[in-house]
Design a protein around this nucleic acid. Structure first.
Lengths: 244, 244
DNA sequence: AATAGAATTACTGTATACAATAAATAGCAG
DNA sequence: CTGCTATTTATTGTATACAGTAATTCTATT
């Protein structure tokens, strides 16, 4: 179009800046960083996530932060209100119920496939994960234990060989961590520490139906450990509290 | 900061510009527009989606387009290759299999719940949707029929009352449209036109187990109608084709 | 004429500037 | 002193400019 360009402008670059290594590895790392913080409950439900603040912390511009927040919003880990910004999602009781129904259907349905594809190597890997989880719990690292527990369930789903369903399970597990944060009792993870080991046992012997039933009980136990009372911070129900 | 501002600048706005009504309705409309075009196969798998071109067409800047493309990528309707841009996803045979396994598990598992919550109004709505689908098919509007069929399955899932699982089904159905586009036979939708009506019948009478079995056969029939041969356009396999 | 290499083009990736809006605060009247 | 309105401030939404990279075209050499 306009030919009046400074000719030495062209001369410039070469290989001076080396900010992006390959793909957008950096963004992925930041995404994971925020996601982990939410799942480990270091960022609690309701916490505001200001774009500027995050941009400062991670040393990238708001553009990149917005991309990451959007992704987290699609996974329902953060809630995005137009013109009001992002905050860590506070799941409602209804959503919590939906998530556990979904987990029952999908995770239990997957157990036969997992049992079928279970080998020495896979069992060993799972046992190691269960061991780390138990250790974290023993040493009082509740946050880490929660994430490791979620990781266990996700890895299990991946062993089914169905990437699509594994991804669904991944999302359900992250959301479960949020639910635990809101409705769980302090100092109680929801599931017994030896549950995962027992499950591996059934899977190892190829007993899919047994594993399925056990997973069902396992999930029910977690759900039952929650106290499903929504702290209504929105409207204090004056009518209910006083008059009548 | 700087106080040297034209004082009438402040006076300005009020309700002059009306570009964004509430939230970002505009962006949602564009998203739906692109999504529909993909599901209806007006944008075929492999089609490139250049940011500039889309920005021009919809009259917004690339920023907004990128946001939408990202969302579509997360839903796996478009594939985003770094520095290479976006294109309509071409599902592999493995992905196709995964999607149908997932649909079997989730959609069939949902049928008992749907049957339980099925009322007059819901049945009538579904029948109307099935009618439109049949009509589209009769009048040769294959593209529309494909979308209406997906809509039917999604609506069904929503009637289960579980928003989370309904969202999963929605994603599976959009992906199924892509799969149909790649592996389906021309002029054959994959499912019989009266299938959906039959299904409504079982649901109406509260026969969840029957509906479940029917849905299973229905999905199997669709999957069976596909010819699962990947057209390897990438590497022409010179070795294979010639020498040996 | 075919191919390697260089210049150009076309496109995506990122930051930044600016516009718009909701929240917070201050000023003012009753 | 209380409640309403106006101003300021904080923060998000959007476009645009520029940088960087893959693809393409052009040129020169064997």
């Amino acid at each position: 179009m306009s030919d009046a360009q400074a000719p030495e402008k062209r001369r410039a670059p070469a290989k001076e800046v080396k900010n992006s290594k390959e793909g957008d590895e950096r963004h992925d790392a930041i995404y994971r960083s925020v996601s982990d913080a939410i799942v480990e409950q270091r960022l609690k439900p309701g916490a505001r996530l200001r774009e500027d603040a995050l941009a400062d912390v991670f040393g990238i511009s708001r553009t990149g932060i917005r991309k990451i927040l959007q992704r987290l919003a699609l996974e329902q880990l953060v809630t995005l209100i137009p013109r009001r910004g992002a905050s860590v999602t506070r799941p409602t009781a209804d959503e919590a119920k939906d998530v556990f129904v979904a987990r029952q259907l999908i995770e239990c349905g997957l157990m036969p496939d997992v049992a079928r594809r279970m080998g020495e190597k896979e069992a060993a890997e799972l046992r190691e994960m269960a061991r780390q989880e138990r250790q974290a719990l023993r040493s009082g690292q509740q946050s880490v234990a929660i994430r490791l527990s979620a990781d266990f369930h996700v890895r299990l789903a991946q062993l089914s060989g169905n990437a699509t369903l594994a991804e669904f399970v991944e999302r359900l597990c992250s959301r479960s961590s949020l639910i635990l944060a809101v409705y769980g009792h302090r100092g109680h993870l929801g599931c017994e520490s030896h549950d995962h080991d027992d499950l591996i046992g059934y899977l190892e012997t190829g007993n899919g139906e047994r594993a399925k039933a056990f997973m069902s009980r396992h999930l029910k136990a977690i759900e039952a450990s929650l106290s499903m009372v929504e702290e209504e911070e929105n409207v204090p129900d004056l009518q209910q509290i006083f008059g009548g």
